[in-house]
Design a protein around this nucleic acid. Structure first.
Lengths: 333, 333
DNA sequence: CATTTTTAATAAATCGGTTTAGTTATTTAT
DNA sequence: ATAAATAACTAAACCGATTTATTAAAAATG
């Protein structure tokens, strides 16, 4: 347990700490070959490993970034995180992931502890509930990138999907297939969460584009545990939907649960399109048509943006970067 | 960006750094109420936040643990991680999660960088490929807990499922339902990975218990990308399986893919039991019978064990802790 | 009133590195 | 032969906290 320090190495090799430090940082210019070898041996023998904490303190860099995800349960979140981690590993940066569980208070706490831990920057899937903090971070020039969602009244770089287009792709496809009573369902839109709002808007615009009526009972943003009830209501109206667009993966699960309960056959009783990919879309009976996000690209791009900011400490010009959704047609439509 | 330090607060409040430190650590005993208030104000005004890096350096504690998961793609892994994070949050400890991607070299690298980062302990889903390092850590008394897998020739605390029982539950159930040609399929068993080996063994023992023959062609541990081929082979033999036990969730996905390709109806053509829960088991057509692990309990327990070791720095007595699997019968059998 | 104890606070060492400004000794240039 | 340049190092300050030993003043005790 007794850790070996640089001083121990210096002693053993009969040089000063400074020289060992030079060695550790691969600055061999001012060091004889003989010295270099002695240090090498000492490190080997003592099994020395530098204390990164000490280095971080002096250098004011931790080579660590934080990721605060609003809700880790979304498949999209996990994929983006995966991409961020890969990109950071390439750049030799560590990642600490925190899940805010959709609670602004948790998000706030994580932002604060991660800053206290001196992480070099933050990638946040913002809950939207901490505008003051976001602004404070922005003003202080702290490296910050938003993913999946934007926050109004800030100029923080945000990397996200062209959500309206995603809805439009789904609607175009369904209309093309002859469906006319298209419903749109998503998780709660109370909190002004970008993708939900934009996908809903995109849905409405797309319906208008096709000259389809906008029926109140055919779209809803509802909390997950009230969704069954909501669908029950939808299907008890006179205009029963012949197709449903699920605003995200969690919604899809609820819709499938409902279909199973009501013994609705897909796609004959009702067609289904999910925005966001799910693990089982290909192997489900029937396989499910989805609009996918390029989540890996989004994550990679976000990480690159952040690392660039953390490195150069300059603002990058663009503030909102949109990625293109893609329709993958399967048998649920 | 210019960070406020304790010295700044001390200046503003007209006290020494020491006193501010006492304040930060809630040791108000030797401090007048007046001083306390002055410090409070100064902190408020300057918006001071302690630098945890500096604290860690002195205290030799980072209040951070590392989790190195062999393969993050398993549902089980993500659930365990979730539990670990929850437990650690309760104890005000941060978690850094790393994915070794089943590669011992990556695992080694992560162990080393996390140690260099001075994390207070490690929870590892071991790849099994770094015995020397495991032993070194064990010998040095470094807090360490294994999850999901054990490693032979070490006495490192391991928290895992009673895997043999899991297989036995599945077999008992299938035999009870009248299935006789039961196949067992899992991902590669080359690397001696505990759950795969034990589940396979459990499967064989259970067959023997029921006096069923052990047919070579009805069990396999195969790499994921060769699995379709393997199943093709299985189903081209004279004794075609009437039931398949999937050794884990990734295997289940492959089996379902195969069933879809070959238009096999579940459970009439072939019954299915999956060891490990998946997100879609309830909503699949048909819903899938699974043997679940108490992954949340496993994760919580592992975290508790580790935090205890990190705190008290004593060995806990038990080395292998097994949790009970549970059969959840659905319509795939 | 002198002495001890308690209270309230501080100076300085420390953690384990990095970095800057020197210091020798040797070599090269003048 | 002397000055300048270079090679090969090192001492000491520093990062921002914690902690130990110490001090000065006030309060309690005999």
């Amino acid at each position: 347990m007794e850790r070996v320090t640089m001083a121990d190495v210096a002693n053993k090799a009969n040089v000063s700490k400074s020289t060992v430090s030079q060695y550790i940082n691969n600055r061999f210019e001012y060091m004889s070959l003989e010295t270099k070898k002695r240090i090498e041996c000492a490190i080997e023998e003592l099994n020395y490993q530098p204390n990164i904490i000490a280095r971080s303190l002096k250098q004011k860099k931790t080579y660590t970034i934080g990721v605060i995800v609003a809700n880790i349960l979304h498949t999209f979140s996990t994929q983006v995180i995966r991409a961020i981690e890969d990109e950071c590993q390439r750049k030799n940066v560590n990642v600490i992931v925190c899940n805010a569980d959709d609670q602004p208070s948790k998000e706030r706490k994580y932002i604060e502890t991660l800053r206290a831990k001196q992480v070099d920057g933050l990638i946040i899937f913002p809950t939207g509930g901490n505008l003051d903090l976001y602004k404070k971070l922005e003003k202080s020039g702290y490296p910050l990138v938003f993913v999946d969602r934007t926050v109004e009244n800030t100029d923080i770089t945000s990397v996200l999907l062209d959500n309206e287009k995603a809805s439009s792709l789904a609607v175009d496809h369904l209309v093309g297939k002859g469906y006319r009573n298209i419903a749109f369902l998503t998780t709660s839109i109370e909190m002004n969460i970008t993708p939900r709002i934009e996908r809903m808007d995109g849905f409405k615009k797309a319906l208008q584009k096709h000259n389809l009526p906008l029926l109140e009972q055919l779209f809803a943003g509802e909390e997950i545990h009230k969704m069954q009830e909501k669908m029950h209501f939808m299907f008890s109206q006179d205009k029963v939907p012949d197709a449903i667009i699920c605003g995200n993966d969690l919604t899809l699960l609820e819709v499938l649960k409902f279909c199973r309960k009501k013994a609705l056959t897909i796609p004959t009783d009702v067609a289904l399109v999910s925005i966001d990919e799910v693990s089982f879309s290909e192997i489900y009976n029937p396989p499910i048509t989805v609009v996918t996000q390029p989540s890996y690209e989004i994550g990679t791009y976000a990480a690159q943006q952040l690392l660039q900011k953390a490195d150069e400490h300059e603002k990058t010009e663009e503030t909102i970067i949109r990625f293109e959704p893609k329709l993958v047609v399967r048998s649920s439509t």
